[in-house]
């Protein structure tokens, strides 16, 4: 038992690597925050755009709208079918070649943001069509315009419907920040992994896993609560 503790919970090694893990936690936190902000905002924008493009409009304009609508659907499908790790590596090498100097951090942020945006778009969109047609008609019959109806009447109801699925999806994608380790983002896993290599002791890895639990366990528990609170109306 002593040997077990010495190997996996070596206090001395853990203490030594604690500052590195803490700095990793900071990187993970702000990377996650940026991913959530851009991903959810872009997803909402795409869903609103798709909804607007689905409106009836005169002929030449309607072709353009249809093309844009299909483009959004295609983007969403690509981001849902390709593994995030593949996207991160691809952006890490690809964007600099296109003249966009983007470090591992930028590549990870961009890839995860786009993936989250795609999933969020689908969920928001599902929420938008789940709001009864009568709500649109009632609002339009009082003289509200399309965007006013969307923003004040339909979206508040749609977003309420989307909170539980969106929360779970956001947590799952945010944990993907650990994939940044592959392109040398100095987040928790990167720090823990290099700690393991330097110390030849698995304790930094144990500490890293604990750090993830500290960050994400409350979020998962909150997600569970939100799920029962906002349960998708059946």
């Amino acid at each position: 038992m002593d040997r077990f503790l010495f190997t996996f919970f070596n206090g001395e090694v853990m203490w030594e690597y604690l500052p590195k893990i803490l700095s990793g936690m900071w990187v993970t936190t702000y990377l996650a925050a940026f991913v959530i902000a851009t991903g959810l905002a872009l997803g909402l924008l795409l869903a609103v755009l798709r909804s607007t493009l689905s409106q009836k409009m005169p002929a030449p304009l309607s072709w353009l709208a249809e093309a844009l609508r299909l483009l959004i659907i295609f983007f969403v499908d690509v981001m849902r079918s390709v593994p995030p790790l593949v996207l991160i590596v691809l952006f890490f090498y690809g964007l600099p070649a296109l003249g966009l100097d983007i470090a591992g951090l930028g590549a990870t942020w961009l890839a995860l943001s786009l993936v989250l945006a795609a999933f969020a778009e689908e969920i928001y969109w599902a929420g938008l069509i789940a709001v009864a047609k009568g709500q649109w008609e009632a609002a339009r019959s009082t003289g509200l315009g399309f965007l006013q109806t969307l923003i004040y009447v339909v979206l508040p109801q749609a977003i309420r419907l989307t909170v539980p699925p969106l929360t779970n999806r956001t947590i799952a994608i945010t944990k993907g920040t650990a994939l940044g380790q592959v392109v040398a983002v100095q987040e928790i896993l990167y720090q823990a992994y290099s700690g393991l290599s330097f110390s030849s002791n698995p304790s930094p890895l144990t500490l890293g896993a604990l750090a993830y639990l500290v960050l994400f366990l409350p979020v998962v528990v909150a997600g569970r609560w939100i799920e029962t609170r906002f349960a998708w109306r059946r």
Binding site: A132, G134, Q135, E137, A138, A139, S141, T142, V153, Q157
Partner: peptide
């Protein structure tokens, strides 16, 4: 003004 069968209140 319009009043609907299913009320359609927000």
């Amino acid at each position: 003004g319009m009043v609907f069968q299913s009320f359609n209140l927000y």
